[in-house]
Simulated assay, not measured.
Amino acid sequence: MKDFSALLLLFFSISIFSTSAALAQSGAAAEDSRNTAGYMGSVEFGYLYGKVKNQFNNPPTYMAAPSVQLFNGYRAHRLFAIGGTVGFDFYDNILITPIALGIRGEVLNRRVSPIYSLDAGYGASFLSGKAFGERPDGGWMLNPALGFRVQTGNKAAFLFSAGYKQQRVEVESITGWGLRTNQRITYKRLSLRLGFMF
């Protein structure tokens, strides 16, 4: 967790340093670039906040787990871009790799604008370590989000978003007597992310 926070801080320090010269450019050039069609990409770091149920009927606890997301797509218009997303999400002791179709859009043609996003797809568990007697398997994923972006020059911008992420996971457990049990879990998490669009 500490390593992820340090990586997040390093990413934003580099991003701010690399775009400081772009802040001096005129706003008109930035507004023109937002209306052009073409490639659009973003990288976002954040946390997934949610309630974790404990065994033996203890009160639930709340935890924050790191999350990383990459988007690559085509911007047809300022209001609509479509592409693919891939990322890494941590739930309890399971690492999920979501692979999804993503839609993005910017509401206003200004330096600061509200944004929206919607990702839907499948969360794979092939990178997750297998605990003794347990085998996790991924499932469908849905993640709508709202936020805002701050233009820094040309097509570059900082992103801030909050969303609601649902991830289905199936866990097959094998007991000491060789009995197999399947458990379906739907993780419901608040997602808070900071990112950079290019």
Rank of each mutant, 00 (worst) to 15 (best):
R135K: 14
W177V: 15
Y47E: 00
M40I: 05
P136T: 02
E172Q: 14
R193P: 00
G105A: 08
F196V: 09
T19L: 04
G83Q: 07
V43H: 00
L48Q: 04
L179Q: 13
F158E: 04
F71K: 08
A24G: 12
I185M: 12
G138S: 07
M1T: 15
S191F: 07
S5C: 09
D3M: 10
W140A: 08
S13V: 10
L10K: 15
G176Q: 09
S173Q: 12
E172C: 00
P114T: 11
K165Y: 05
G121P: 03
M197C: 12
A6P: 01
T175R: 05
E44I: 03
R104H: 10
P114M: 06
D32K: 07
L194S: 13
E170Q: 13
L108T: 11
S113E: 05
Y116S: 04
I115G: 06
Y164V: 09
V169Q: 07
G87K: 03
G27M: 01
F196M: 08
G87D: 04
A131G: 11
R180M: 12
N35A: 11
G123F: 08
T186P: 05
G129E: 15
F17G: 04
P136N: 01
N182E: 14
F17D: 03
L142Q: 01
K2Y: 09
R180C: 02
S128N: 13
T175V: 06
M141S: 04
G123D: 09
G153L: 03
F45W: 06
A100I: 06
G176V: 08
E106Y: 01
A162L: 10
A131M: 10
F4A: 04
E106T: 10
Q183A: 15
T19P: 03
N143A: 15
N54L: 15
G163N: 12
S173G: 08
V107T: 02
N143K: 06
Q25C: 10
S117N: 14
S125R: 00
I115T: 14
N182Q: 11
A37W: 12
P98Q: 00
L8W: 05
A37R: 14
V86L: 05
L48K: 11
R104V: 14
T19V: 04
G87V: 06
M1S: 15
A157Q: 07
E170N: 15
D119A: 15
R104E: 12
A24E: 08
L95D: 01
E172G: 07
Y187T: 11
N154Q: 15
G87H: 02
L192Y: 03
Y187H: 14
A120H: 01
N57L: 08
M40V: 06
K155V: 10
A37L: 04
L179T: 10
L159Y: 03
G123C: 07
W140S: 01
T85G: 01
L159T: 12
F88G: 02
L194K: 02
P60Y: 12
N54S: 06
G129S: 07
F160R: 01
G50L: 08
G178L: 09
Y116R: 05
V52L: 07
V86I: 12
